[in-house]
């Protein structure tokens, strides 16, 4: 069973807060799911990172296009106001976010 510390570490990596009361059930649920999906250990290979070339083309293809500016015809043209209206905290046209770079104290 995965440990309490592992659950807390996973939550931190996943940017999730977990309640104290949830930790035990998460340990249990994640462990039982991992035990089930662990069946894949019988599969040969997979120990080196698989590249896109090894997959069937129907599943994974990289598709590139030139990075050219498109004037008009853009899906989001004239949508600035709609996007701004979704801001959680808006001042004028700005989205207010928390200050992350601070002077050394």
């Amino acid at each position: 069973m995965i440990s309490r510390e592992e659950v807390l570490k996973l939550a931190e990596l996943a940017r999730l807060k977990v309640e104290e009361a949830e930790v035990e059930s998460l340990q249990k649920d994640i462990s039982s799911i991992l035990a089930y999906v662990g069946q894949v250990s019988v599969v040969a290979g997979g120990n080196t990172s698989t590249t896109a070339e090894e997959l069937p083309p129907a599943l994974v293809r990289n598709i590139m296009r030139a990075d050219t500016p498109r004037a008009g015809g853009d899906l989001m043209a004239d949508k600035e106001e709609v996007l701004r209206s979704a801001f959680p905290t808006r001042v004028g046209d700005h989205n207010v976010v928390r200050k992350i770079i601070q002077k050394d104290e």
Partner: peptide, 15 residues
């Protein structure tokens, strides 16, 4: 490697 790597390899075989 133990999970995602194996799964991707097995997915190819399944396909």
């Amino acid at each position: 490697d133990a999970y995602y790597g194996k799964a991707i390899a097995a997915r190819k075989v399944l396909a």
